[in-house]
Computed example of a mutant assay.
Amino acid sequence: MFLKKFAPALALTAAAWFAAGAVHAAKLSVAATPVPHAELLERVKPALAKNGVELDIKVFTDYVQPNQQVSDGQIDVNFFQHKPYLDSFNKEHKTRLVSVGLVHVEPFGGYSSKIKDVKDLKQGAQVALPNDPSNGARALLLLQAQGLIKLKDPANILATARDVVENPKKLKFRELEAATLPRVLPDVDLALINTNYALEAGLNPVKDALFIEGADSPYANIVVTTEAKKDDPAVKQLVEALNSPDVRAFINDKYKGAIVPAF
């Protein structure tokens, strides 16, 4: 009798409890480039859901909108870039985005469909570079490491083609949008390509690159958000999930050296 009398009230209380749980479930939107960033996020999505964080992965194919939309508050977090790129973006766009954790390194590589060895690069060869300041400089530093050029400041992570002081092969540099570099590979002699775009194009950096950065590259990919959200519990859970032993094993097994953990 007691249960029958109070059953409606108990049902309403349970419904209210579940509704409150739904209201307070943390939703976190994350902007990411498709490979490997969105793949890594998909890997941690189920575990985060079990811990009360609903991950909304939004895929972008450029390097500007993910930062702009996080800065504007349209998206909570992004995961696609390294710290030198973030610093350059903040300076150029007057934004104040911050890194909240390292995840992996994508060793940058030089690719060619015309030669099999960098020693075969001809005089006056056309070399395609990313046109954003940080990745353009990264490409030049890698060319310098191969002995192809020499920079005025050999350690300048924001060097440009104007800083090349020695160019014995008289290489001609073409600065292009990073996402387009795999597509122009047949039209140039050498292209310096970010690993995420190389992977998307079906290139294996370990097998297909003529030369590649070492695993000690300082360009670790990071999780980025605003100052206001850097201490958000859901953001912290995302970073912890991306730094988990499961993700480390997933990176090593799936990418086989094309990307390497930075945690």
Results as ranks from 00 to 15, higher is better:
residue 2 F to P: 00
residue 8 P to I: 07
residue 9 A to T: 13
residue 11 A to E: 06
residue 13 T to Y: 10
residue 14 A to E: 05
residue 19 A to P: 00
residue 20 A to K: 11
residue 21 G to L: 10
residue 21 G to Y: 01
residue 24 H to Q: 15
residue 25 A to H: 11
residue 26 A to E: 15
residue 29 S to F: 03
residue 36 P to V: 04
residue 36 P to R: 04
residue 37 H to C: 01
residue 38 A to E: 06
residue 42 E to Y: 07
residue 42 E to L: 11
residue 46 P to Q: 06
residue 46 P to R: 03
residue 47 A to E: 13
residue 49 A to P: 06
residue 52 G to P: 13
residue 54 E to K: 11
residue 55 L to K: 02
residue 56 D to A: 10
residue 66 P to Q: 09
residue 66 P to E: 09
residue 68 Q to P: 00
residue 72 D to F: 04
residue 79 F to P: 00
residue 79 F to T: 01
residue 82 H to W: 04
residue 89 F to L: 09
residue 89 F to W: 12
residue 94 K to E: 14
residue 96 R to W: 06
residue 97 L to G: 03
residue 107 P to Y: 00
residue 115 I to V: 15
residue 120 D to W: 08
residue 120 D to G: 13
residue 122 K to M: 04
residue 125 A to F: 07
residue 126 Q to N: 13
residue 129 L to Q: 09
residue 132 D to K: 01
residue 137 A to Q: 05
residue 139 A to C: 11
residue 143 L to G: 07
residue 145 A to T: 12
residue 146 Q to H: 13
residue 148 L to I: 08
residue 149 I to D: 00
residue 155 A to S: 14
residue 155 A to D: 15
residue 158 L to W: 14
residue 163 D to Y: 05
residue 164 V to S: 09
residue 166 E to S: 15
residue 169 K to S: 12
residue 171 L to F: 12
residue 173 F to A: 03
residue 174 R to K: 14
residue 179 A to T: 10
residue 180 T to Y: 03
residue 180 T to M: 06
residue 184 V to Q: 08
residue 185 L to M: 12
residue 186 P to W: 03
residue 189 D to R: 02
residue 194 N to G: 14
residue 198 A to C: 03
residue 199 L to F: 03
residue 202 G to R: 06
residue 206 V to R: 07
residue 209 A to K: 09
residue 210 L to W: 12
residue 216 D to K: 13
residue 225 T to W: 08
residue 226 T to S: 14
residue 229 K to P: 02
residue 238 L to H: 04
residue 239 V to Y: 03
residue 239 V to Q: 03
residue 240 E to W: 01
residue 241 A to E: 09
residue 246 D to I: 09
residue 246 D to H: 08
residue 247 V to C: 06
residue 250 F to T: 05
residue 252 N to F: 00
residue 253 D to H: 11
residue 256 K to W: 10
residue 257 G to I: 03
residue 261 P to R: 01
residue 262 A to N: 05
residue 263 F to D: 05
